[in-house]
């Protein structure tokens, strides 16, 4: 199957402005968009840059804007998209080159919510006990692969890049609702600001963008509720 792949390219060392490049690519319908990008890289234009590693939707490297939606290039099949594929870097991050964006700010926000179990009592000899129900409480948010698809699809983030963003809130949720964790108050304090959860306007782009099927808006709503109850 022959498809036209249109890629937004930019090399700050060379180009003044981003520009569109088009490539005609031979692929199988069951190929991934990632395969199409690699075809371009390996056979048509070796200067193209993008990130990828696992190629099956687990490492979170290759979130990008594909036909107008944030998706993992390795998790979309060409046949879903038809004969024209448009690929752009994630919005709202500085572009390093082509589809490679600067993720430092994104990870700084992740670190800001203290993404580690906070529990200072000495541990037991074996495991902390946790019932299957308690474990299920935060299962959804443990799936996050930090791909940034949610945060960069969020109009609130586009409007203000300092907004902590859905990904960081999802990861705060993962700990706040873990029965073993004692750090909810510290994390909620970080989130209880104008640039924290309250900037979320419940637009739902994030849910649609998440390649792991996490109910991001629900996680945010639960964090908001926890804040309301904790401040009572």
């Amino acid at each position: 199957m022959r498809v036209m792949v249109k890629i937004k390219r930019f090399n700050p060392g060379r180009d003044r402005e981003p520009y569109w490049a088009e490539y005609e690519v031979d692929v199988e319908p069951v190929d991934r968009v990632l395969d199409a990008l690699e075809y371009v890289k390996w056979h048509l234009d070796g200067t193209l840059a993008f990130r990828r590693s696992c190629a099956h939707g687990i490492c979170g490297s290759d979130a990008m804007l594909i036909n107008g939606r944030n998706r993992l290039a390795c998790k979309v099949l060409v046949k879903e998209l038809g004969a024209r594929i448009t690929v752009e870097p994630l919005r709202g991050f500085p572009v390093i080159k082509d589809l490679v964006v600067d993720m430092e700010g994104f990870f700084a926000k992740y670190r800001a919510i203290k993404p580690y179990l906070i529990h200072d009592e000495p541990p037991p000899e074996t495991e902390w006990r946790q019932s299957p129900e308690e474990r299920a409480r935060f299962d959804d948010t443990t799936k996050c692969i930090l791909c940034a698809a949610c945060t960069t699809s969020c109009p609130s983030f586009w409007a203000n890049g300092a907004y902590i963003g859905p990904a960081a809130i999802v990861n705060a949720h993962r700990f706040i609702f873990d029965s073993r964790d004692r750090g909810a108050a510290e994390r909620l304090a970080v989130l209880n600001t104008g640039l924290g959860v309250w900037r979320c306007r419940t637009i739902f782009n994030c849910v649609e963008a998440c390649p792991r099927g996490i109910d991001v808006t629900r996680a945010i709503a639960e964090v908001k509720r926890a804040l309301l109850f904790s401040s009572l």
Binding site: H119, E127, W128
Partner: peptide
């Protein structure tokens, strides 16, 4: 494995709450 659990690893659980 216990150390990972103490660091927060969300293992699946048995009905008694063990790994």
């Amino acid at each position: 494995v216990y150390e990972l659990e103490h660091w927060g690893l969300p293992f699946d659980r048995t009905p008694e709450g063990k790994i």
